[in-house]
Computed example of a mutant assay.
Amino acid sequence: MRFPILIRLVAGIAFAAGSAAATAQDYPNKPLRWVVPYPPGGGSDVIARTIGGQLSRQVGQPVIIENKPGAGTIIGAESVARSAPDGYTIMSGDNGTFVFNGALYKKLPYDPQKDFVPVTLIARFPLLLVANPGAGFSNAKDWLEKMKRAPGQYNYASVGAGSPHHLAMEMIKQKTGTFMVHIPYRGAGPAVQDVLAGQVPMMVLDLATAMPHIKTGKLTALAVLSGKRLPLQPDVPTLKEIGLGDEEIYAWQGVVLPEGTSREVVTRLNTELTKAIAAPEVAKKLTDFGVEPLSGSPEQMADYIKTETARWHALIKQRKLGLD
């Protein structure tokens, strides 16, 4: 009596395994949904649409960009974490999604470590410390001296509380022993406008957003937060050059899939994304935009997230930062 049941069970397992293998082998055979947890038009959106267009051409399927902004990327991340692990819902997230939020919020509706499978890093935004030319800072060392002489008398803007731009300035404050008042905004647009208008004297800003204003003289670049000087800003010193040690701070992006996605699908998507990022027209567009293209294995992305988590969670805890 038990043998027919056992045969059906084994047959069912074999069928499921065969279906999974076929799915991985044929992947992708329908449109891909790429969730961007930010509004349209921003840097994250530009990166996804640039790479997604090339990815679509390679795999012969539409790549549909779906913007799901809100709550510091939490809304988009939660939706992807709850999606079917079939490889057809992917997401690009940043430091906040995979690192900062886990320390800034007491409770998240997703687990940055357990609910996603890393696929590859795709890009990073070089960051700069910029100021309104009328703020009275002649260079980075002059800025630092004034910050030390007048604790609490200067404000700085950020594109949002808990953003890479905000936490970069918190790291600078920790390293320099200075105190500046944080003025958070909802996005780069309003923050930059107030710095340009002189309502707030300074902020940390990504190269892509800052460059047009630096070129017109409406913003002054005081320091770059990269490990070495930027080709587009060769005269601007690094943090190390102004005495802040070996810190390198970037806003970075990576692609993930929901936990439970098969290894074969992860590998295929990694291969296709790596190829798309390396395409000359894609690399040029990203570089011209002010972004450094990246790629790598899923394991390298996972290791990078672990390293970043240890680094930034320590800072967030030390400075007693939180968003709830």
Rank of each mutant, 00 (worst) to 15 (best):
P133A: 02
Y156Q: 02
F137H: 03
K146A: 05
E170Y: 01
M147S: 09
A150H: 07
W143A: 15
A161C: 01
F137M: 06
A135I: 08
S163F: 10
G152A: 02
A135M: 06
L128E: 15
P133K: 04
S158F: 05
K141Y: 02
K141P: 01
A140C: 09
A168Q: 05
G152I: 09
N132M: 14
N139G: 07
F137C: 07
H166T: 06
H166D: 15
Y156C: 04
R149E: 14
A168V: 08
E170M: 11
A168W: 05
Y154D: 00
N139A: 08
P126E: 12
G160W: 11
M169C: 00
K146Y: 05
G152K: 02
R124W: 12
K173S: 13
I172S: 03
P151Q: 04
V130D: 12
W143N: 10
Y154S: 02
A123N: 11
F125S: 15
E145D: 14
F125L: 12
K141R: 15
F125C: 12
Q153F: 00
G136N: 03
S138H: 09
L167I: 14
K141C: 00
Y156P: 07
E145Y: 01
F125T: 14
L144V: 14
A140R: 01
L127W: 13
G136C: 04
P133C: 08
L129G: 10
M169E: 14
M147E: 11
E170K: 08
S138C: 00
P151L: 03
M147W: 02
A157M: 09
S163V: 01
A140I: 13
P164V: 05
Q174R: 11
F125D: 15
P126G: 14
A131W: 10
F125P: 00
K146W: 07
Q153D: 07
S158V: 10
V130G: 12
G160T: 10
E170I: 03
Q153C: 00
H166G: 04
A131C: 12
F125N: 15
P126C: 12
P133H: 03
K148T: 12
A135N: 03
L127S: 10
K141T: 15
A150C: 02
H166I: 08
L127E: 15
D142A: 02
A150I: 00
M171D: 06
N155F: 07
M171Q: 11
P126V: 13
L127Q: 15
D142G: 07
G152Q: 05
M147F: 12
L128R: 06
R124V: 08
Q153M: 04
S138T: 15
K141S: 15
G136H: 02
R149A: 15
Y156T: 01
W143I: 05
